[in-house]
Design a protein around this nucleic acid. Structure first.
Lengths: 189, 189
DNA sequence: ACGTACTATCTAACCAGATAGTCAGAAACT
DNA sequence: AGTTTCTGACTATCTGGTTAGATAGTACGT
């Protein structure tokens, strides 16, 4: 048998992503993750420490991927919302992971420095766009951003089975359009 | 010792509400519920059947309370969103229960006939308001309603501890205003 | 009043299976 | 030989759910 620590780590992470997205932290089973990863359970503890730390690794990775993939464009917030929608549509597990995280890890994502900093940047960018008159000033920047994220995520948390079966493309398109429309209305100067 | 089946049932339901809101179905512990309710664990199984059925009873009750308390006013959707915001602020456990439900009970809330029917009614009401020109027709009624709910729930899922400590009133007021503003923009003809 | 049979409500102990986490050592690679 | 990577068996504890029986309240015949 080939031996490759890097690869086993990656297989564990992939299996854990699916498991946590489906069942959350409390519902996830370490044995099931090990089996799905075709790895020995002990490797999970050697590489990640504990079930919770494994979840953190999974979640940090997924959030990092989102942050790297979908940059904010404060001058085109509807487009940004659409891009978020697309990303979550493409990676349904992210949305579920985020919801589990919010419910099972009290204290929010204060531990994710990367995400925290990115959020601060986004808030600044929105504020600047408001000052420049590109975006309406009806609500404070951080609240506007929170609303935008909520709107973009409205249809994002499909169950694992429902996710497996592709939703009809026209339905997805209509929802995407609704999201973009809502953010247009919301951010109109 | 006094014996009162009704009261024990109620105590179990109250304890279960807190437990499920805090930990979800998988994370909830039946023993902890029994202890918090000062009831024998067996009573839970006699009265409710199983942990999942107990959750359903809790959730159905909480949803029913919402439906009875916050009626839709299709002519004033911003006000409806504000009322939803208020209700969820007053009953933080509902929002958490709803999120756990969405994550842990695949298939959505198809089982809640009452809620299903109520949602259909709301969609019709929104559609009628659009036809009457009271509400913009930029998006289909069911999508508009979904967006409205998402916006109203944006700040609703505080962790149990964070919920215990009251959020500053001015912060709540600002968020409420943001929700109402967003729905005004969204539904403007 | 009083005992008796009956039912509803409750209790404590118990169980079989699951679960996170550990350990000693084998197998591959250098 | 030495180090990294992996394995299978093991454990202490917990968990949802069950069971057998105790206790309180009630209806009723006398």
């Amino acid at each position: 048998m080939k031996r490759d620590a890097q690869a086993t780590r990656a297989r564990i992470l992939a299996a854990a992503t699916a498991e946590f997205a489906a069942f959350g932290i409390a519902g996830a089973r370490v044995d099931r993750i090990a089996a799905a990863a075709a790895a020995n359970k002990n490797m999970i503890y050697i590489y990640f420490g504990s079930k919770e730390q494994l979840f953190d690794a999974v979640y940090t990775g997924a959030v990092g991927q989102l942050l790297d993939t979908v940059p904010i464009d404060a001058a085109d917030l509807p487009g940004y919302a659409g891009a978020l929608f697309d990303h979550m549509n493409l990676h349904p597990e992210l949305s579920r992971l985020a919801r589990w995280h919010g419910l099972e890890r009290p204290g929010g994502f204060a531990d994710l420095e990367h995400a925290m900093a990115a959020t601060m940047d986004k808030i600044s960018a929105v504020g600047a766009a408001q000052t420049a008159g590109l975006v309406g000033s009806g609500v404070a920047p951080h609240e506007l951003l929170a609303l935008l994220l909520a709107v973009a995520a409205t249809w994002s948390a499909g169950s694992p089975e429902l996710t497996a079966e592709q939703p009809p493309a026209e339905l997805t398109a209509a929802r995407r359009a609704a999201v973009v429309f809502a953010v247009q209305r919301l951010t109109d100067p």
